[in-house]
């Protein structure tokens, strides 16, 4: 049984507009059998934080192309992507890439 985790979930680059414009969310993930990883964090976010148009954020069991995922300010690709196991006090940032100029 994994203990509850306190993590900071942040959105930027316009991704926050799908979350009522709120960029920073201090969340407590409840204790569960399996350890928390990014894969089930995404499911949790979709159920608990996402306010509208999930297709603009989620694609399949991952994030849609064009959203960068940063775990404690490092590209999730360096840390196992969906399989990264969350630690207490982690900061997970979802940043929508900008194209304007």
């Amino acid at each position: 049984m994994a203990a509850p985790l306190s993590v900071e979930v942040e959105f930027g680059g316009g991704a926050e507009l799908l979350f009522d414009g709120v960029k920073k969310h201090q969340v407590t993930l409840p204790g569960q059998e399996e350890p928390w990883d990014i894969r089930n964090l995404l499911v949790w976010i979709k159920k608990n934080l996402l306010k509208e148009r999930p297709e603009l954020f989620i694609q399949g069991d991952s994030v849609r192309p064009g959203i960068l995922v940063l775990i404690n300010d490092a590209d999730w690709e360096l840390l196992g992507e969906l399989d990264y196991q969350l630690q207490d006090q982690d900061t997970i940032l979802f940043i929508s890439t900008l194209h304007g100029g």
């Binding site: 930027g12 680059g13 316009g14 940043i95 890439t97 900008l98 194209h99 304007g100 100029g101």
Partner: peptide, 8 residues
Amino acid sequence: SALRFEGQ
């Protein structure tokens, strides 16, 4: 790149 109040 830039949009709204953000840049990268």
